[in-house]
Design a protein around this nucleic acid. Structure first.
Lengths: 130, 130
DNA sequence: GATATTGTAGACTCTAATTATCTATAATTA
DNA sequence: TAATTATAGATAATTAGAGTCTACAATATC
């Protein structure tokens, strides 16, 4: 069980945008070069952030990506949800009704504890140390 | 990012052993039948629990698996560690020294919060409700 | 000591997800 | 219209997960 690299790129992209003047527009190429990955690959990741309404994209000349929320409103969890999805980390196929499984309940609550931590932690908080 | 099914089988096996007389010896076949999976497959999973010293296996006639610790000493995390390994959920390849990455630090602490919860939760606590 | 029983190791397969890349296309500005 | 910028689609390589099957090792019992 591991977070995907896409999540890492997404978190670093948002942090990068906040750090380098949060109101600017950033081109895909600039961002991709920053991580040494192909632009189309990063595009797929950022498109998920667009769908999640965390950033906005505009095509065409002078286009690019821009933050869509105030930095106080962008948590780690918001970004992770966009890239990893919202499904539970643990699932139990051994019961007809998973939610009745005692093991599932514990695993789900443990997951919630982690997710609450990530929901409360905002990305701008750590940008100053980067 | 998902827990493996192996973790689910492992947790259910320990719970099953605690529930059905914790001092008994259980044969692989009985346990595998219980979950409708093949014995050799479950064996691979339980062998990890043996290595982690949570259960003991004895081959031969009248052999089987038996718990090796008192039930108060078997936490969810103990089992999960055995099946999922001990590596961090998040890793950052964008820095030479990962531990200096601010994003990594937050992700690691979030993980620790979840793991502490699972370390404090013992399997015998939920068996009574199964 | 032979035999039945029980767990383990190894090789192997199948599938799905991850991690990309490349090409073509759509939208926008100048 | 041309240049620029993001997106969608096809494709491919690699790895992890989820098993199965066969052979083997250890143990008890007769």
């Amino acid at each position: 069980m591991k977070y995907t690299k896409a999540t890492n790129y997404a978190l670093h992209t948002i942090a990068y945008m906040i750090k380098n003047n949060k109101d600017d527009k950033f081109s895909l190429q600039i961002l991709a070069d920053n991580f040494n990955i192909s632009a189309t690959y990063l595009s797929k990741i950022l498109t998920e952030l667009v769908k999640a309404d965390l950033i906005q994209s505009t095509p065409g000349v002078k286009g690019g990506y821009v933050l869509r929320k105030r930095v106080e409103e962008i948590s780690f969890m918001d970004v992770i949800k966009a890239t990893e999805g919202t499904g539970a980390l643990f699932s139990c196929e051994l019961h007809d009704d998973e939610s009745g499984c005692q093991i599932f309940k514990v695993m789900k609550e443990a997951e919630n504890v982690m997710k609450r931590y990530l929901q409360n932690k905002k990305i701008y908080e750590i940008v100053q140390y980067m």
